[in-house]
């Protein structure tokens, strides 16, 4: 039991090693750092592609994190920092694509799915078969006989 507890304690003590972010990377001002993290979480790591630059261990992601922090510290707005990266890597760098002509289908897809599903449900409900006519006296008698046996 003690051994197990010890192993668990060691495992938990090792947890910080799993975190990618290096405290040396962070800005001294916690408010600026929070802003930099929020910006970085919206930016795609271009090496791994399905991670944000805040989550990625790739070299390029680290460089981009550094640039984001430099610009935040220099007083640039979130919009300006993102625009700087979009100018180099295109909208692809944004994990949350902007609403424009080429992304209409993407943004409209939840509404479209609800509309199609709702439409199908409505059609099915309208076309539902009529309830069967009530049993005749003869049928009711037969049913009773069957149930009694």
């Amino acid at each position: 039991m003690i051994r197990l507890a010890l192993a668990l304690a060691l495992f938990l003590a090792a947890a910080p090693a799993f975190a990618i972010s290096d405290p040396n990377e962070a800005l001294p001002d916690p408010r600026q750092e929070a802003r930099a993290v929020a910006i970085g979480q919206q930016l795609r790591c271009l090496v791994c592609q399905n991670e944000s630059i805040e989550d990625s261990g790739a070299d390029l992601a680290r460089d981009l994190r550094h640039i984001v922090r430099q610009q935040v510290a220099a007083g640039k707005s979130d919009r300006e920092v993102i625009a700087w990266l979009v100018a180099r890597y295109g909208n692809f760098v944004r994990l949350r694509p902007p609403f424009e002509l080429s992304t209409v289908l993407l943004w409209a897809s939840p509404a479209l799915a609800v509309a199609i599903g709702g439409g199908a449900a409505l059609v099915a409900w309208r076309n539902r078969p009529a309830p069967p006519p009530p049993l005749t006296t003869a049928e009711r008698d037969r049913l009773r006989r069957l149930l009694d046996t």
Binding site: L46, V47, D59, L60, D63, L64, I67, R88, Y89, G90
Partner: peptide, 13 residues
């Protein structure tokens, strides 16, 4: 060496 010019070019690798 720092890879900064590559970022200005939009190099991903």
């Amino acid at each position: 060496a720092p890879g900064r010019v590559a970022i200005d070019w939009g190099v991903t690798g």
